[in-house]
Write a protein that binds this DNA or RNA. Sequence first.
DNA 1: TCACTATCGAAAATGGTTTCCAATTTCAAA
DNA 2: TTTGAAATTGGAAACCATTTTCGATAGTGA
Lengths: 157, 157
Amino acid sequence: MPRGECQGQGWWHGRFRGCGYRLTIGREAILDVLSKAPGHLSAEDIYIKIHPGHPNVGLTTVYRTLDVLSSLGMVSKLDFGDGRARYELAEGPKGAHHHHHLVCTDCNKVIDYTDFIDEEVELLRETEKGLGKKYNFKITNHVIQFYGLCDKCIHKK
Amino acid sequence: MPRGECQGQGWWHGRFRGCGYRLTIGREAILDVLSKAPGHLSAEDIYIKIHPGHPNVGLTTVYRTLDVLSSLGMVSKLDFGDGRARYELAEGPKGAHHHHHLVCTDCNKVIDYTDFIDEEVELLRETEKGLGKKYNFKITNHVIQFYGLCDKCIHKK
DNA sequence: TCACTATCGAAAATGGTTTCCAATTTCAAA
DNA sequence: TTTGAAATTGGAAACCATTTTCGATAGTGA
């Protein structure tokens, strides 16, 4: 994961070139899938979705690209505890679709919630600022997840 | 992970028995290590710490026990994104040592912070309540983590 | 004592992710 | 154009934390 730094603004194509990366067919295809499918795709999900139209894009490339996208801050890598990373397009803490996650520890169902987001984000922003200063961290991302049992799994046995 | 349900109160010994589990030497040793060492131990860390005094407790057992402890809510399973789970004794959202995490995505250094915890916890409690009701979730845990670059890694090229 | 489980450790298997490598593509400078 | 260095690629093999399997042992209640 070289050339990590480069959190500029701008988007997609320009962003890539500006950081010395090339926006190739494969990468575009991956971004395309991510922007169309509703969140939480695993590397394999993406690979499978891409394969019909781009049979020559390998799983390795998907992983590599997700890594790059992630280091550019364009994609968020999520972990719901099932041993398989998920990815979703990042939209910044103030983006219209910003959400947090509610994860069932039994069936691994994931609910995106946006309720309370405003309050959370506000608090988070302050916290981020304070922590960044105190610990000399350059904070780029946050994860808020609630774990528990979903409707079905509470009653299931 | 059988017999999942059993989030009673009480602690340790009584808690085990009450749920049909046995509190064996190995399990006690694991709880002991967790309660003494400062948080964030991986399964292997625990295995290594235990081994001198309990050479007959295998890594498998450590994993199994952590699983049980986790399902009993006595231990929190953490993920810092380095592909290796960490565990720490759970203390409940209101526990004296409750903290959240600040993770460097470059060197994987983890800082426990307690600043802002009060505000966070308060908001969290409300959110938890609201979400639980709205989505019919029985929320048992939450994760709040900030990711970024630590002091050293910002400047390290 | 007698079943009936829970539990055990070691070894093997699993499976997501990374690494390796040789071939290909891209792009800017000549 | 041509050219060469750097970026990128796919496939196979490696990696490695975690799980599963399996046969054996130990607790527990009757």
